[in-house]
Design a protein around this nucleic acid. Structure first.
Lengths: 334, 334
DNA sequence: CTAAGGTAGGAAAAGGTTTTCCGATCGCAG
DNA sequence: CTGCGATCGGAAAACCTTTTCCTACCTTAG
C-alpha cells in the first residue's frame, strides 16, 4: 500500500498530501508545538493513507541518539548469552530501542573491529557479555563517554557498571534448603576453581554450613561435564565422608552425580540429595530424578541490564558491581 | 583521545585541521575523485590525530542503505538460532554490515511491531528464523521491496527465498552408514510427525533402506525428549522386530535410547548401533557411548544466508527453497 | 608567449527529519 | 471599527556526509 512510485515515502509526501508544511507534519507526529486538532487529524490521515514511516536515521542524525545498543558477546551467542539477550532485547524494544549483535569470541582483534563498527553506527550504549572465567580489561572507548554495562562478565575497572548473578547467595540458599530438609553431611562437587563463580559458590556453601553449625564436607573440583560429575561423585562416595547431600557446581555435574549414584545402588534423594546450578531446562528435566537447581535468572539479569542502560542513556551514570538474586527451583532430587 | 571539547568530532573538524574543505576530506577517506597524494596524506593524518570516525547514519541517509540486516527470531534465541546467528553475523560483519536482533516468539503482534521498528530503521534486508514446526505466513512487507530470507523456517510464498538443512539427505547418509557397517534391521525413533523435518528424515531413512533392498523397520513417534527416547526404545526392543540399529530423530531421543539399551543389558554399538540428529555438543558428548550424529551445519546455513543476503542487497534477487547438506559425525555409537 | 587541456580542490545541493523563530490570521475587547 | 493578543502554521537552519559540478591554476605544446 505504499504509493507505488518513486521509492520511499517521506515527510514531504505527507506534507503535500495533507496540504501543509513538513514542519507541521513533524509536529503532528510528535505531538509538539501547537496545532489545531483538525490539522493534526488531517496530517495523521495522510500519514495513514501513505503508510508513512519516519526515517529513524534522519531523526538520529538530528538528535544524536540512534536508539540502538551494541551487544558484544564473547560467548559465541552461547547458552548463557541467550537468555540475557532475550531479557535485554525485550526491555529495549519496549522502549523503542534495538540491539546490535556482535560476536567477538574472546578475540581482542575482532572485539576492536566490532567496537569501531558500533561507534561508527552511533550506538547509544554498549553491553558486554562473556563466558565469565575472569575479569576482563575494560572496553577501550577512546575517551568517548558512552554508557557501558558488563553483564555476566566483569570489567577490571571499578568505575564501570557490572551486573552479575549472586552466586554466593544462590549456593547459600541451596545449602540452607538441604539443611532445612534434614541433611547434615553436605559435600560440594564443582568446576575448576579459576572461575570466580566457583569460588563464590563455595563460599556460599561454607557460609550456610557454618551458620547451621555443620562441618564442611569435602569439595571436589573437575571439569563442567557429566563425565566428571560421575567420576568425582564415585570418588566421593568411596571416601570416608559419607555425604547425605551434594551441592553440584552446575547441572551437568549434578546429572553425572545422579547417574553415578543410581548406578551404584543409591537412591536420590532418599540416600543422597542433589542440587544443581543453572536450572538448564534440558538437563534438569532429563535428569533422573528431575533435578532441583539454582536458577541464575539470567533473563531478569538481561532485563535489568536493559533498564539500567535506558537510565544511563537518559543521563544517569551508574557504576559498581551489582549482584542479582538467584532462586532455587525445587524438583525431585532435593 | 577525542579532542575533549564540544562533542563528537565531525568531518568539519578534520577539514579545519587539515586546512581543506569537507569535500576533500570525504574524497581522501573514500579514495574517490582526484587528489594530490600530499593532500590525501595530510587529511588522513588529521583523521588519525582527531580519531575521526565517519557517522554512518549520515552516510546512510545519503545512500539509502543502512548496512544493517534485521533478524527476526521466533525461537527466543534458542539453541537452533544461535549457530545460525553466529554464521550470519560473521559473514555480514566481514562485509561491514551489522545484525539487528528481534525476538518475536511466535507472537504475530510482536513480530509486526518489530517489523515496524526495523523498517523505520531503514534496514537493508530481513532474515526470519524459527523453530520450524511448519510453514509460516510470509512477513508482510506492505509492498516495500526488501530482501527477505527465511532460514530454518519456511515461508508459504514460493517466491520467497528459504534456506533449510537437507533433512532427508542427512537421514539417508546416516542410514547408509549403518548399512555399510553391516546393519540390516534398522528402526526409526523420532519426534512428532507434524514436523516437516520428521517426515523428511523418515523419507531419507526409507530411501536408504530401499536402495539396499532392506525391509523398513518400525517407526515410533514421540516427543523430542530423553524420556520418550527411553520409553519408545524399550517398547521397540520388546517388540517382534529386533533392530540392530536405530536412527533417532534427535540427540535427546538417541541419548534416551542409549540409556534404555544399556540398562536392559544391551551394548551400544555391538548389539544395537545408534545415530542421533543435531550433533548437539553437550548431548553427544555426555551420551554413553559418545553419539554418532547428523550435523545440520547450522553455522554454515547462517553463513550462506549472510552471503545470499549480501547478494540480494546488491541487487540480485533470489527465490526458491534451497537445502544445504548435513554431515555425519562419527563417534562410538555407530 | 599564449592558448588549450588537464587536474586539484572547493562550493553547494541533496538526503529526511526536528526545532526554533517568526509572520499571519482570527477573535475579542474597547 | 480598530487594535492587541493569542494561536496556528510555515520557513529555514541544523544534523553529517557524499557527490556533482565548476573554477582556478599549472603545465605543456604550438
Amino acid at each position: 500500500m505504499s504509493d507505488g512510485r518513486n521509492g520511499p515515502v517521506t515527510i514531504h509526501d505527507v506534507a503535500r498530501a495533507a496540504g501543509v508544511s513538513i514542519g507541521t507534519v513533524s509536529k503532528a507526529l510528535n505531538n509538539t508545538g501547537s496545532l489545531a486538532p483538525a490539522t493534526r487529524e488531517k496530517v495523521l490521515a495522510a500519514v495513514k493513507a501513505l503508510n508513512f514511516r519516519p526515517n529513524v536515521l534522519a531523526k538520529s542524525l538530528h538528535t544524536g541518539l540512534s536508539g540502538t545498543v551494541g551487544l558484544i558477546s564473547n560467548d559465541s551467542f552461547g547458552r548463557f548469552t541467550m537468555p540475557i539477550m532475550e531479557g535485554l532485547e525485550g526491555v529495549l524494544s519496549e522502549n523503542g530501542m534495538g540491539v546490535f549483535m556482535c560476536n567477538a569470541t574472546d578475540d581482542a582483534e575482532r572485539e576492536k573491529a566490532h567496537l569501531e563498527q558500533l561507534l561508527a553506527k552511533q550506538i547509544d550504549g554498549i553491553v558486554v557479555t562473556s563466558r565469565r572465567a575472569d575479569r576482563r580489561p575494560a572496553v577501550d572507548l577512546q575517551g568517548i563517554g558512552l554508557p557501558v554495562i558488563y553483564v555476566f562478565s566483569h570489567s577490571d575497572d571499578p568505575d564501570d557498571l557490572t551486573l552479575l548473578p549472586d552466586d554466593e547467595g544462590g549456593a547459600f540458599t541451596a545449602v540452607s534448603h538441604l539443611i532445612q530438609s534434614g541433611r547434615k553431611r553436605i559435600a560440594h562437587v564443582t568446576g575448576p576453581d579459576h572461575f570466580e563463580a566457583v569460588r563464590l559458590r563455595q563460599k556460599g556453601w561454607l557460609a550456610a554450613l557454618a551458620q547451621a553449625g555443620l562441618p564442611p564436607g569435602p569439595i571436589l573440583h573437575g571439569e563442567w561435564s557429566e563425565a566428571h560429575g560421575r567420576a568425582l561423585t564415585t570418588e566421593l562416595m568411596v571416601g570416608p565422608f559419607r555425604p547425605d547431600a551434594i551441592l553440584c557446581g552446575n547441572d551437568r555435574i549434578a546429572r553425572g552425580a545422579a547417574d553415578a549414584l543410581r548406578e551404584s545402588g543409591l537412591r536420590v534423594p532418599e540416600d543422597v540429595a542433589l542440587v544443581g546450578f543453572d536450572n538448564w531446562k534440558v538437563m534438569v528435566e532429563a535428569c533422573r530424578p528431575p533435578l532441583t537447581s539454582v536458577d541464575m535468572n539470567l533473563r531478569e539479569l538481561g532485563a535489568e541490564t536493559g533498564r539500567r542502560m535506558v537510565q544511563m542513556i537518559r543521563g544517569t551514570p551508574q557504576s559498581g558491581t551489582i549482584r542479582l538474586p538467584c532462586s532455587l527451583v525445587l524438583r525431585d532430587s532435593a
